[in-house]
Design a protein around this nucleic acid. Structure first.
Length: 481
RNA sequence: GGCCCUGUCGUCUAGUGGCCUAGGACGGAGCCCUCUCACGGCUUAAACCCGGGUUCGAAUCCCGGCAGGGUCACCA
């Protein structure tokens, strides 16, 4: 049987890096085994769900290249893929649970709940600000064993069976995990407004969508238990679970949307990170394949498994991300990189730039000198300008009288060239050096300073080819004057 | 606090009882290459949380501490 996996975000914010990795692992597993990857939107939190967030998540996944076989815009026969569109289905199933004795209507009012909390606090001698949950507060509804129907709003609670012992599941990455039955109270499955709660909607949908494997963050370990009870109540076969470790920020706190900008997937796009570099990096954050570090997309698909997903939390390492990015900047076809660096270059004030031979050459020259597309664009920018401002210190050091003599000779040699290519340009430096008994460096630096305004650039040949014949002479003559 | 999960260089990790005087990557230090800057190559410092067991032998298995994390909603 082909596996079916899903990513089920709630549209309450941008695509979080942790969510992206969860999506990636599910996607990778589905792709590896020729299965199906489903995107389901859990929009039952109407307070926080927004269409903008939905779009942001879709955009994030699309940018990363994580495509879904079923989900928004792609009907696969297991829809709807938005939970708010299947409210009737949840009600029907909740009624079924009531009918079979696995759930009950709870007519308790807000006031009654508050009173119960207050009584509990008083009994335990708690102060106002104390957390009742950590003190062990559990609400036992008086409606658990009443079977009467009543007018008015009610929520529906799952009737947790009173059993001795423990129950659990075999996690694909963590191994056997168990908990005692009495750890759970009668959790709410349907709100009084008819909208399902997470655990209920999740189980119903995973079943309806025939999901076989669920990979999700470790923060969901504890919600697996009530979900397991729901599967039992319905008599459904639960999927296999794989709980993957959380990602922490460098300050060792959970990577949060508010405190850590790196938590936003699209922020990395803006920072000039290649989507595949991000994929490669987050894949390695929590999963490994021996000593391998760099993987192409196909290699990731061919090698991914839950067995080698780590058990402990990982810390975000920006340096390694940029190192990975640089590797892919160097190892991706220049044309593809050119297309991605173009917007950055144009934003820097070079609207005339386009994806052409010049830009491709520039990408080749600067890929190994840049860590991000932003940096590459900044380095490319001067090659799209007319004229250049020469750095004072650089001029003082290299555009000395002697330097200018060598520069002048180089200009003469350059003028003789019929072909303006790196191959033709490169030897000029040595030619001039040999002819004038100077070191190559003594010739190269004045040219570099005159052509770029500074002491740092790629090889003279590429630099001048990038500049073009006309602009090169323009700058050289300006420096010679 | 109850319950649950985890614990190898600064960070990500390899490691599933002998191959480990613990390997790789990022970062650090140094050297080489070199027209500058990079890239690349080489070298190097740096870790098995602690304590008990089990075993001929433990980073690997067990127990106990300790530490970190998760979770306990009409959020997901």
């Amino acid at each position: 049987m082909k596996p079916r996996l899903r990513f089920a975000p709630s549209p309450t914010g941008y695509l979080h890096i942790g969510g992206a990795r969860t999506a990636l692992f599910n996607w990778l597993y589905a792709r590896r085994h020729g299965g199906t990857f489903v995107l389901r939107i859990e929009d039952t939190d109407q307070e926080r769900s927004t269409p903008e967030s939905l779009q942001a998540i879709l955009d994030g996944l699309t940018w990363l290249g994580i495509d879904w076989d079923e989900g928004p815009g792609k009907d696969g026969g297991h829809g709807p893929y938005f939970q708010m569109k299947k409210l009737a289905r949840y009600s029907e199933l909740a009624e079924q649970l009531i009918a079979t004795g696995w759930a009950y209507r709870d007519y308790s009012t807000e006031a009654e709940l508050a009173a119960a909390r207050k009584a509990f606090a008083a009994e335990k001698g708690l102060k106002d600000g104390d957390d009742l949950r950590s003190a062990g507060f559990k609400f036992s509804s008086p409606w658990r064993d009443k079977h009467e129907q009543r007018e008015g709003t009610a929520l529906i609670r799952f009737k947790m069976p009173r059993r001795e012992g423990r129950f659990g599941f075999d996690d694909q990455v963590l191994g056997r995990i168990e908990k005692p039955y009495d750890d759970f109270d009668d959790f709410v499955i349907m709100r009084s407004d008819g909208v399902p709660l997470y655990n209920f909607g999740c189980v119903v949908d995973d079943h309806d969508m025939a999901i076989t494997h669920v990979a999700r963050g470790q923060e969901h370990i504890n919600s697996t238990f009530p979900q397991l009870m729901l599967y039992e109540a319905f008599g459904w076969q639960p999927p296999l679970f794989a709980h993957i470790p959380l990602i922490f920020a460098q300050d060792n706190s959970k990577l949060s949307k508010r405190k850590h900008p790196e938590a936003d997937v699209m922020k990395h796009k803006a920072n000039g990170i290649l989507p595949h570099a991000l994929i490669n990096f987050i894949a390695r954050l929590g999963w490994s394949h021996g000593n391998d570090e760099l993987f192409t997309r196909d290699e990731l698909i061919a090698k991914f498994d839950f067995e080698h997903v780590g058990k402990s939390q990982g810390v975000w390492n920006p340096g390694k991300l940029t190192a990975t990015n640089q590797h892919w900047l160097k190892n991706t076809e220049p044309l593809k990189v050119a297309m991605q660096v173009l917007p950055f270059l144009q934003a820097l004030g070079a609207p005339e730039a386009s994806v052409d031979a010049k830009l491709e050459l520039g990408v080749k020259a600067f890929a190994e000198r840049s860590t991000t597309l932003v940096e590459m664009a900044e380095k490319l920018r001067p090659y799209y300008a007319h004229g250049v401002t020469i750095d004072g210190a650089a001029a003082a050091k290299h555009l000395t009288p002697e330097g200018k003599v060598l520069l002048g000779k180089a200009r003469e040699e350059l003028a003789k060239l019929s072909e303006w290519t790196t191959a033709a340009l490169d030897p000029i430096v040595k030619t001039v050096a040999d002819a004038s008994g100077a070191k190559v460096g003594a010739v190269a630096q004045p040219i570099r300073v005159a052509a770029t305004g500074g002491t740092v650039s790629p090889g003279i040949g590429v630099t001048l080819e990038l500049l073009g014949r006309e602009e090169t002479f323009h700058r050289l003559d300006a420096a010679l004057r």
